[in-house]
Design a protein around this nucleic acid. Sequence first.
DNA 1: AGCAATCTGAGAAAAAGTTTTCATCCTTCC
DNA 2: GGAAGGATGAAAACTTTTTCTCAGATTGCT
Lengths: 122, 122
Amino acid sequence: MERSTRQRRAIRETFLEAGRPLSPQEVLELAKRKVPSLGLATVYRTLKGLVEEGFLIPVVLPGEPPRYEPAGREHHHHFLCRLCGKVYELLGCDLALEGHLPPGFLAEGHEVTVFGRCPECT
Amino acid sequence: MERSTRQRRAIRETFLEAGRPLSPQEVLELAKRKVPSLGLATVYRTLKGLVEEGFLIPVVLPGEPPRYEPAGREHHHHFLCRLCGKVYELLGCDLALEGHLPPGFLAEGHEVTVFGRCPECT
DNA sequence: AGCAATCTGAGAAAAAGTTTTCATCCTTCC
DNA sequence: GGAAGGATGAAAACTTTTTCTCAGATTGCT
């Protein structure tokens, strides 16, 4: 089990080259450049496997299909371009709102998404 | 067109009484207390209408089905209880990360979701 | 190279959420 | 009160996304 196939290598490389979170569809399109016969089922199977082995983590943004990004990065948030739909990583986090929680609420984590335009779409 | 029916009054009241964003399923359950025969299709139709007329606005959180809340509130964010799944409104917003954007990125808005436990689930 | 087990690709199927259909009911207006 | 047309509810149909099926290809190992 867990063979190193052309498809899996292509998908793994795609993430390293992209430098931003990718959706299954984006993975399919980008990785097809390396393995044109790539099928969507293989993308889903591979994403699932890469998450289980800890290479990827899922990124979920409001109203968006799931994306994946390489694991092991520092706490950060995301930028979603409203025009092209690409997601980028934003370094740093100024959020200090845990103090604003009403009594009785216990914060365990948070998620910040900034919407706007990316450099390519300005 | 746009009649005032028992169902629509019940759904509108449900939002005013709930004081927090509601999903279509939650609306169905809560409004059924007022109109037991209420059907899911009517909930969807009414939500759509209430959004169009400006009474409600959609609230989308990461990985969650859409919710709706009464329109006209100040800028605020949301708290999602990981146990009961209820969403609450958080007043205030300390976010100052627009300054952290890399060059070329233009922010138009943002969305903050805090995950944790609500008072009922502690 | 040869073999066995895993992997792949295409389409079918499943899952979840939302919309449509349609016969009947209910509001509105006269 | 009664007519007309929008509204309702139940179920079917649809979307969109993800998973499953299965025959054939590929990989890892001897």
